[in-house]
Amino acid sequence: MTIRLDTVQGFGKDGLDATMKSFGAVSQSMQAIAAEAVDYSKKSFEQGTQVLEQILGAKSLDSALELQSNYIKASYESFIAQSNRMSELYADLAKQIYKPLEGVVGKLPTSPFAGQATS
């Protein structure tokens, strides 16, 4: 049994093209994910610094504890929202990686020797 060379070359070219498209999608998506993470970190740091300044300037222990409590609640809500956003970005990344490969996988024969005469 032999495998037709033109069939193998066609799958190789299609696979390479799909892989290159997939790598491009990964690059763009990872840049978006990194930018999102940097923005969240920057905002979180700025909010923490601002609240710390307010706590240090508080006139009573009760007001300082209230500021801290409000900050913790807001930070938790912000973290949950950011986690959801990052989950969406990673889900989109997975879809973009698979999309170019989907066409190649659909073209694969069920048997590598399909359509060939047996000896």
Rank of each mutant, 00 (worst) to 15 (best):
S83I: 05
I72G: 06
K13N: 02
G106Q: 12
F45L: 14
E46M: 06
S41G: 15
A37Q: 12
A37W: 11
N70I: 06
E36W: 15
V105N: 03
K42P: 00
G115W: 02
A18S: 00
T19C: 10
D6N: 10
S119G: 13
A25P: 08
E66K: 07
I72M: 08
E53Y: 14
T110S: 13
L108Y: 01
E77Q: 08
S27I: 10
L56P: 05
S63T: 06
Y40T: 07
K13I: 08
V38L: 01
S87K: 13
D62T: 04
A81L: 02
I72Q: 10
M86N: 12
I33E: 00
Y76W: 09
A18N: 00
L89F: 03
A94K: 04
A114T: 09
E46S: 04
A114L: 12
Y76H: 11
L89V: 01
S87N: 14
Q54R: 13
P100T: 00
Y90E: 03
N84H: 10
Y90S: 03
G103K: 02
Q50R: 15
S119L: 14
A91D: 14
E66A: 03
G115F: 01
E88A: 12
L52T: 07
E36F: 15
E88I: 12
F45P: 08
F79A: 14
Y71R: 06
K99S: 11
E88T: 14
N84S: 06
F45N: 14
M1L: 13
G24N: 07
M20P: 11
S44H: 04
S87V: 11
I55V: 04
S119E: 13
Q28W: 00
V38K: 01
Q96C: 02
K95I: 05
M86V: 14
Q28F: 03
G115Q: 01
E77W: 03
M86F: 14
S29F: 02
G106P: 07
K95C: 04
S29C: 01
R4L: 06
F23I: 12
T110F: 13
A64K: 03
A37I: 12
A18G: 00
K59S: 11
S119Y: 15
T7H: 11
F79E: 11
K107D: 03
Q116T: 14
Q82Y: 14
S69I: 07
L93F: 07
I80N: 06
A32S: 12
L16F: 15
